[in-house]
């Protein structure tokens, strides 16, 4: 599949999609978005690269084997769970180490903690799982079509 238009568009669109996916992941807690949606967008970006410039290129862009990404994601989610267990005595309980409680009862600081780690884990699992299946699907369908 050597379409000049596709590969040109991909060169612009794929990085944009990837940045957008991280944006969607981060904003997910307060606005529509989150790990699932972000992960799907990122996966589509890599699939686009694979379709435009070949699977090898997409693998290079991904840098790590898809299943390793998915495994890391799962591990991160589990770590987030144990974080809550150790710090607050409940598995997967949300921990916000950077939140500051002001004197008037309002909260300040950065909302970064175990929940974000968990969502990041979801994000990575979705990317790794979808890309892993897709690349192998393409490979199984046959090198002759590429």
């Amino acid at each position: 599949m050597n379409s000049l238009v596709l590969s040109t568009i991909t060169r612009i669109l794929a990085p944009l999609l990837l940045v957008f996916s991280v944006f969607i992941l981060l904003r997910g807690h307060n606005d529509p978005g989150g790990g699932f949606i972000g992960g799907l967008i990122a996966a589509i970006a890599f699939i686009l690269i694979s379709k435009a410039e070949g699977r090898r290129q997409a693998m290079v862009a991904l840098r790590v084997r898809p299943l390793s990404i998915a495994g890391t994601g799962l591990l991160m989610a589990i770590v987030a769970g144990f974080w809550g267990l150790i710090a607050k005595g409940a598995f997967l309980k949300g921990i916000w180490p950077l939140i500051v409680y002001n004197a008037d009862g309002s909260k300040g600081g950065l909302p970064i903690g175990s929940i974000l780690l968990f969502d990041l884990g979801v994000f990575l699992v979705v990317i790794g799982g979808v890309c892993g299946i897709f690349f192998n699907l393409e490979k199984a369908v046959g090198e002759d079509t590429d």
Partner: peptide, 21 residues
């Protein structure tokens, strides 16, 4: 539903792979 969609996709991908095989 959000969860169901993603799981449904996983199931679909697996079934597709199995069918090809």
């Amino acid at each position: 539903i959000l969860t169901a969609i993603v799981i449904g996709f996983g199931l679909f991908a697996f079934t597709l792979a199995l069918s090809l095989r």
